[in-house]
Design a protein around this nucleic acid. Structure first.
Lengths: 338, 338
DNA sequence: TTGTATGCGTTATCAA
DNA sequence: TTGATAACGCATACAA
């Protein structure tokens, strides 16, 4: 079934059929019903390739994320896909992993598929070494690039982020104000957002005149790390002679590992040790004691990202290039803030 | 840049350019290099729409899942997308939710996008009321349908599942053998896999001459349920006077809720109460005590699903319609099996 | 080995 | 309000 068949069945030209399909107003009610009836009867669907060929777009958006099984990224992909489909766009998903070459490759692949835009989900896409971001900038010459939780300044690149710096700053401050003068920070990523969090910790410590060094900032490499690796990592820190009365982490799973460590050593949380995570996912509630964490407003961020993209498409005059949402500290029993 | 431009630059016909692009052998080495040089110089990429129009395919596979933020589904999507891309297929993702109408709608949308196949991820796509599966069967007239963790028998539908019945049967048996004569089962889904699990519990109980009734099988409605709802649910069961010395659940998050209940009531796990979950995700390790759970072999299932699809595409003679993987019980400290 | 010509199913322009 | 027809960019059957 193609447009010719329908035009024949309905006794009109293909131009008229096309008009009906695309909701043109210049079709008489009589012919419209005639055509619609034929379309309905023969179950005709326009060929998207032919349409794409003419219009040079198929209303498809590329979504790139490093790892769709990561809870944070998975949720983001979920929100974004749903919002896009509400706007009649389909989503071409690409799980790129964390290697720069693969990311670059995937973006080019998406470009070759003529997607209307690409959403980069996760702060890992923006590299500190700006030269490595060239491939993203280049892509933005062709189509808009939306970044969720990362910032890259360029004409056709739009960013929506959580104020990770502010959230970690605030949580660190509350640790200190509550009497925890020796907090340490554990993080697992040097991405844009990872750096912001680290700086938040750093600034809060500095503002309270507590010296910061490699003794209270600890980087644990690798993504998709498990609770037990995290537990061992903290155990090693403690056994290396570093003293701490609070642990702030860049991710709930790390904090869960800290709780395991505390339980194992008979350290009482929160009395002897404060623990806080980040992201506020299921895990935070499953822990014992339950975990204080930061709600990163992911849903709001994703909504904003998609609605911004739609604004870009509709060529509205002024579209915000960068948007920042504030994280919210959700206190549970792993801390007792004053 | 299109194929005409390149043919002109290279001083050959468009047919030759096409041949080079598609790796035809009947092109002299000399012309090939000439053409490749032109392609490279002008950064030409074939127009996928034009290609799709002629070939009636764009090497795109639809992936449908109810909720890409659900850990189980997210991991499945991740594995499948990666495997597909290794085979040079792109993935059109559709998060459908759990409503029948939306699912049907999404499948039709995917069909209208001329995807080469659709992968239905999650047992929730196969309904008990077989009439509701009609839309899936109908789609299979056009393209192969792959189901991950669900079974639907039809000519062009292929299923890959975990033996959920066997896994729950085995775990229930081990509860009983270990002296827990009053286990209860809590589940949250009546999907294909949900029913299989329930039957596994039922059969194990029956085989050990323990009567089964609504007193030891409890259904808690709704997806995306939290730990606290689960905890309250178990608390209600206990307070309604039902006695139990073991809880087997269809999902880790439910089991995490049971642990919260036990902790709250001062019930010792595993001494007084055995608890087991299902899926064996991060959460199982975060719990205190850590959770015995079932590894559902999701990665193997997804690999198999994609490789089966590739076999279907290559029109191999015999492709297995249904494949079953065995789950593996991972024992942790929430049980003490004998 | 290479080139010519045609079809794929739309949308859009222009004329009626 | 309608219809005829030209793009859109590629793959491929057929000819050379």
């Amino acid at each position: 079934m193609n447009i010719y068949d329908i035009s024949e069945k309905a006794g009109v030209s293909i131009a008229t059929v096309s008009r009906v399909i695309n909701g043109s107003t210049s079709v008489s009610e009589k012919t419209r019903t005639k055509v619609l009836a034929a379309i309905d009867e023969y179950g005709y669907t326009p060929n998207v390739f032919a349409r794409g060929l003419g219009l040079n777009t198929m209303k498809t958006i590329g979504i790139m994320c490093a790892d769709a099984s990561d809870p944070y990224l998975a949720r983001a992909v979920y929100y974004i896909e749903q919002d896009l489909r509400k706007n009649n766009y389909d989503s071409l998903l690409s799980c790129t992993g964390y290697s720069h070459d693969v990311k670059k490759n995937c973006l080019e692949l998406l470009l070759s598929k003529r997607v209307g835009a690409v959403v980069l989900v996760g702060s890992n896409y923006v590299e500190n070494n700006d030269e490595k971001n060239t491939y993203i900038r280049k892509a933005s010459d062709t189509i808009p690039i939306m970044i969720v939780n990362g910032v890259l300044n360029a004409p056709n690149i739009y960013s929506t982020v959580c104020d990770d710096h502010g959230a970690i700053y605030e949580i660190t401050k509350r640790f200190i104000k509550s009497g925890k003068k020796k907090p340490i920070y554990i993080y697992s990523s040097n991405s844009y957002s990872g750096i912001k969090k680290l700086e938040g910790f750093y600034d809060a410590m500095k503002d309270h005149n507590i010296p910061v060094s490699e003794k209270n900032c600890h980087f644990i490499k690798s993504h998709g790390i498990g609770v037990h690796e995290a537990k061992n990592f903290v155990t090693n820190i403690a056994e290396s002679g570093i003293e701490f009365d609070g642990v702030i982490t860049s991710d709930d799973i790390l904090a869960a590992g800290v709780l395991k460590y505390a339980k194992n050593k008979g350290i009482s949380v929160p009395d002897e040790l404060f623990v806080a995570g980040y992201n506020n996912f299921d895990i935070a509630e499953c822990c014992e004691p339950e975990l204080t964490s930061v709600d990163n407003k992911l849903e709001a961020i994703c909504h904003h990202c998609v609605s911004t993209l739609m604004s870009v498409f509709s060529e509205e005059k002024s579209v915000p290039k960068n948007a920042v949402f504030s994280g919210e500290i959700i206190e549970r029993s792993s801390t007792k803030f004053i």
